[in-house]
Design a protein around this nucleic acid. Structure first.
Lengths: 158, 158
DNA sequence: GACATATGGTTGTCCCTGCAACTAGATAAA
DNA sequence: TTTATCTAGTTGCAGGGACAACCATATGTC
């Protein structure tokens, strides 16, 4: 993907390549690191969404929103995590269809270890390689772009 | 993944979240756009590696390097692309084990359409949303980080 | 040349994901 | 209440990717 692309000048193309390659390598790199605690990056995010939740519990659909993933995926991930004893499920008192997912003590322990791995990786892969200013710049430029990727956006135009 | 993480201050954590979310959303977003021409982002990259190659042909292992993916994956992707008539395979004259993969005319046509979709997406998702200066900044900061993600790097330390 | 080793690719198995169809409980209308 | 519709979540199937084991050709050593 290095060849000049239609409608992009060289510097635009450079950026696009960087974003593409980064995106392709990031998840596998993190998955490899988190394998030590038996989690994927996505599972880590799912557990984190619970840990961050106001009352430490979320419904599947809420987890799906917060992890930017479709509900069926969360349904299966939660089933796996439940099978491993990292989360528990309780039927919502207000809605018999909904289930509330909570972290178990074991889940909290694993999450804690995973968070440490995450932080170490963040430093090793990125933060220790760029200046604090560049880090701030990067976050500032990147954050608003996330919204445009969130699949609700139109596919066609542009 | 919004909770404060160990060893990261708030701005560092913001960057990490932005990188993580961006990486998770980017590939699906591009895959969805490229579906129109029946390619995934990865297949697009694989075809592009051929198109970029000096003599317009590469061996599987070379494609693997250029797409940052393991050889078995390329082996299967090439098989699919070959089945769809987008590439052809010819045994290397110098090494009976190696095969040379080349784009077909049909492959070139599809790649051309895909490149247009790519460019449009690049504008719509990113380039039209940030200034030219920010784009250049982003590329400058991001590019060197790619090397650290390329899986040869150590998993443990950091 | 014969044997060991290294290299280029392929294949088999398992797991994960996407998508569509589906079940079950909730809400609305009549 | 009965029926229709909507919503929360689950499940089945098909396709792709990771990893390890494997086959076939090449190279190096004696």
């Amino acid at each position: 993907m290095a060849q000049r692309m239609h409608g992009l000048d060289e510097s635009q193309s450079d950026l696009w390549v960087a974003l593409t390659v980064f995106s392709q390598l990031f998840t596998p790199a993190m998955d490899a690191r988190l394998r030590e605690v038996g989690l994927t990056l996505f599972e880590y995010g799912a557990l984190m969404s619970l840990s961050d939740a106001p009352d430490r519990a979320l419904r599947i659909s809420e987890m799906a929103e917060r992890t930017y993933a479709p509900v069926p995926r969360l349904s299966k991930v939660v089933a796996r995590l439940e099978g491993r004893g990292l989360v528990t499920r309780s039927v919502s008192t207000t809605d018999g269809r909904a289930s509330l997912i909570s972290l178990t003590a074991s889940g909290r322990r694993v999450l804690l270890r995973a968070a440490q791995i995450q932080a170490a990786a963040a430093h090793y892969l990125v933060l220790d390689r760029i200046s604090a200013g560049d880090a701030a710049t990067l976050a500032t430029i990147l954050s608003p772009l996330v919204a445009s990727l969130d699949t609700t956006g139109p596919l066609s135009d542009g």
